[in-house]
Simulated assay, not measured.
Amino acid sequence: MSADRPAESELRRGMTVEIEQSNADNAADADPIRGEIQTIIDEGESPQGVKVKLQSGITGYVTQVVTD
């Protein structure tokens, strides 16, 4: 896992995060998406980071916590 991506222990439901989308045909080319965490899907270490489901229903790997 990239050292600059947040660990699962740092994430909580309702936090606003930026993700790389994982459930789209064009996921590799898609822009990062911001949203609030609904569910943490992956509990453990993954090379891509922690996988979450946003309240919008989109799933992806957290790249950063948004601190606006």
Rank of each mutant, 00 (worst) to 15 (best):
Y61M: 13
T16E: 03
S56W: 00
G35V: 03
E8L: 07
S22N: 15
E20L: 15
R12P: 05
E10Y: 03
D31P: 05
E8R: 14
G14H: 11
Q48A: 01
R13A: 11
Q55I: 12
D29S: 14
I33V: 09
Q64P: 02
R34F: 00
Q38Y: 09
G60S: 12
K53N: 09
V17M: 09
D68K: 14
I58M: 14
Q64S: 15
A30D: 01
L54F: 10
A24R: 13
L11G: 02
G35N: 07
Q55T: 13
P32D: 10
T63R: 11
N26A: 06
I58C: 08
E18A: 04
E45L: 12
E43K: 10
Q21T: 15
I58Y: 03
I37Y: 06
G44M: 03
E18N: 05
D29P: 09
V52E: 06
G44D: 03
E45S: 15
A24I: 05
E36N: 13
S56F: 08
A24E: 04
S9G: 09
N23S: 12
S56Q: 06
R13W: 06
S9E: 15
S46V: 06
A28P: 07
V17K: 10
L11K: 05
R13L: 01
E43F: 10
G60E: 15
S22W: 13
T63D: 13
D31S: 08
S56A: 14
T39M: 01
L11Q: 00
I40P: 02
D42Y: 04
V62K: 00
P47T: 00
K53W: 02
G35K: 03
G35P: 01
Q64D: 14
V65M: 15
